[in-house]
Nucleic acid binder design. Structure first.
Lengths: 205, 205
DNA sequence: ACCTGAACACCGTTCAAGT
DNA sequence: ACCTGAACACCGTTCAAGT
């Protein structure tokens, strides 16, 4: 009776390893993710992961990539209702970005917390990150055009908006906004307000 | 002839260990800092650091604390010329923050890159971080008062400004602003412009 | 006081071997 | 194809010992 017996093969070890990576990152931070412990949680030996990932860095990169694809999907959803209102669309995107960081902290940390020399960035990871940012860039560009914003350089404006949302996200998940009276759950709303204000600062009166 | 001979004691091992921590962080990122390698670079045995720090986390915390004190000093300097111009003072502070991150990347990474459970945060480290943020808060508060900004909550405005500068700093030192046409050296100027625009967005016309 | 050396449990990675 | 087990060099930390 095939399909019932405990197979010699795992089934979807790759998925199980990614799940273990995420849960370890959520518990101990990205630095606490261990190849051996991930394998242990997936119920295989220490060396089994090497069948699915070149090395530890590649496993972390795969989890990051997944995060970027998830964020990309969220951003697409969040922008849909505001196709005709560029300002609100960008504001909604800011809220979406921070909400994602708060809701998927492990993913978010893996995406951005790898330290400086992102030498081990997979091609696939780089592509996923690029896609995500390009979505923002397009949103800002079309928004700026429609709203006739006075910003000289659209790319620079996109960077500023990204930075604002990213900064709030980072500070929120580190709990550093709390003693300023802003709990995690409200961080997304703060981001929306801040992005809107920033855009207003560039809107010619 | 005391003072000339190679002493049994190191002299200032603590300082040497912090320097080694910084140089290792600059080379390999915060995750690449190793107690054993720091000791080796300081020319002592693997266990000598335990005379000066409780554990590895304490050594990293000491380096972080030093970073916060350095940033605090820079911010104080940067604000001085603009005592009478609150807007420009806050803008100068944003530039100063990002310039610090670019110039002292190792310090900056150690200050903010420790992952989520900052369980090992020393009292001294927490105090240094608090002091630094309070300087920002005071600057924003007095600036907002003088300029009669329309922001309802000054603390929230301070958070937004911090986030904006922090976001640009993080993205700049990760090299993620470059393909947007903003090299590291120009990131400080972009931050100043962005902070100014954000404030303008809150200024009632 | 300050530093050393051996020891322990852990880690990433490799390699020959098993099914 | 996919997984195991032993092995190697590295890590943080402890502890008895040296000056």
């Amino acid at each position: 009776m095939p399909g019932r017996r405990r197979s010699y093969h795992h089934g979807d070890l790759r998925r199980a390893l990614l799940d273990a990576t995420l849960s370890l990152a959520a518990e101990f931070g990205p630095a606490g993710v261990t190849l051996r412990q991930a394998a242990d949680r997936a119920g295989v030996s220490q060396t089994a992961p090497y069948r699915h990932f070149d090395d530890k860095a590649a496993m972390l990169a795969a989890a990051s990539e997944e995060g970027f694809r998830l964020l990309h999907a969220r951003m697409t959803e969040a922008a849909r209702p505001f196709a005709a209102e560029p300002m609100r669309r960008i504001g909604a995107w800011g809220r979406c970005y921070v909400d994602f960081a708060v809701a998927h902290t492990a993913h978010f940390r893996l995406m951005f917390g790898q330290g400086s020399p992102q030498k081990s960035a997979t091609e696939a990871l780089q592509a996923a990150a690029r896609d995500t940012f390009q979505l923002l860039f397009q949103t800002v560009e079309s928004g700026a055009r429609t709203a006739r914003l006075g910003a000289a350089d659209t790319r620079e404006l996109a960077l500023k908006i990204w930075s604002l949302a990213h900064g709030i996200a980072v500070l929120a998940i580190d709990g550093q906004t709390v003693f300023l009276g802003v709990p995690r759950e409200r961080a997304g709303g703060v981001a929306e307000g801040a992005v809107t204000a920033l855009l207003a600062g560039y809107a010619n009166p």
